[in-house]
């Protein structure tokens, strides 16, 4: 499976470097380095981080509906980034944007894990996530209504929809360290997540530091999702969909899904981004559809399918 995913990523990367507004073919080196390479690299990075975060969250919370977007963690990251953006901190100090995204995601993760520690039942956790999403949406709306000028408003709204166009290698440099670190933290949690499948008590008697595993999950997800949201805006459903696509092939052991979810998330987001780029060439669209809009449109029916299957 890993081999097929890597092959898919290589193929998609070649395609992604060869397709753009300038058409299909070997591009001008300037276009390649300044436009297509950053875009491709960010799609792989952000998608990989989201896919792995989804698998780790579902494992840690023992809930197949867990996803950074659905649980409001993505919204928290967006809120953090918008605050940094809004106050102009990010204009003065570029890393402030991903750092604020990380901080926002960290707060969201901490809230959910504290909640999950007390009441780990599935529905109550999802409800807590909905509450968190609603609160961040309201705060974002507040930030938008208080925006200093209509341009800032349009810019923030556009950014919130999520997308990867017009990114540069400096965005890659900003996002790479936190996402890579977050992924490293999450990839090492396999055994802990396996043991948690038996519940927290049984996991503890297997010699597993349960609290530490949950805290590391929160930190890893905050790093990967927060930095991703800071450079790519709101992109949902990747983390929800990816582990579900892999389970019928690889089985349900949480630890077995981590690395594959990283690869599949990267492939899925790059494929979605390619679709967004190709859409205006074949459809009568004035502009590329936003990537976040596209993943939501593709992911929402999937959520309905999962909900139907997990409902008692």
């Amino acid at each position: 499976m890993t081999r097929w995913l890597i092959l898919g990523i290589v193929l998609l990367t070649v395609l992604s470097l060869g397709v753009g507004a300038a058409g299909l073919g070997v591009p001008d080196p300037l276009i390649l380095w300044q436009i297509r390479l950053p875009r491709t690299a960010l799609a792989l990075l952000v998608g990989g981080g989201l896919g792995l975060s989804g698998a780790a969250l579902q494992g840690a919370l023992r809930n197949p509906l867990a996803d950074s977007g659905l649980l409001g963690i993505g919204g928290c990251a967006g809120l953090g980034a918008v605050i940094a953006y809004y106050w102009g901190v990010s204009a003065l100090f570029a890393p402030a944007l991903p750092l604020a995204g990380l901080a926002g995601a960290g707060v969201g993760c901490a809230f959910l894990l504290m909640f999950a520690g007390r009441a780990a039942s599935g529905p109550s956790l999802i409800l807590a996530g909905i509450a968190l999403s609603a609160a961040t949406a309201a705060m974002l709306a507040l930030a938008l209504t208080l925006a200093p000028n209509p341009f800032a408003l349009a810019e923030i709204t556009f950014w919130l929809m999520g997308g990867l166009e017009d990114r540069t290698l400096s965005h890659v440099a900003l996002a790479l360290p936190p996402i890579a670190l977050g992924c490293l933290v999450l990839l090492r949690l396999g055994r802990g997540l396996d043991a948690l499948a038996l519940g927290e008590d049984a996991a503890a008697t297997l010699g597993l530091p349960v609290g530490q595993t949950l805290r590391r999950t929160a930190a890893g997800v905050a790093l990967a999702v927060g930095a991703g949201a800071a450079v790519a805006g709101g992109i949902g459903f990747v983390g929800l969909v990816v582990p579900h696509l892999l389970r019928p092939i690889l089985g349900e052991r949480p630890g077995a899904l981590l690395f594959s979810s990283l690869l599949a998330g990267a492939a899925l987001l790059l494929a979605a981004d390619l679709l967004a780029r190709i859409a205006p060439m074949v459809l009568p669209l004035a502009q590329e559809p936003r990537l976040g809009v596209l993943t939501a449109l593709l992911g929402a029916p999937f959520l309905v399918r999962i909900a139907r299957r997990v409902a008692p």
Binding site: R62, A197, G199, T205, G251, R253
Partner: peptide, 15 residues
């Protein structure tokens, strides 16, 4: 020491 809680279940459909 191995401990099996009451109503021990597995959250995922492992084999």
């Amino acid at each position: 020491v191995a401990y099996l809680p009451q109503n021990a279940r597995c959250a995922w459909a492992l084999t």
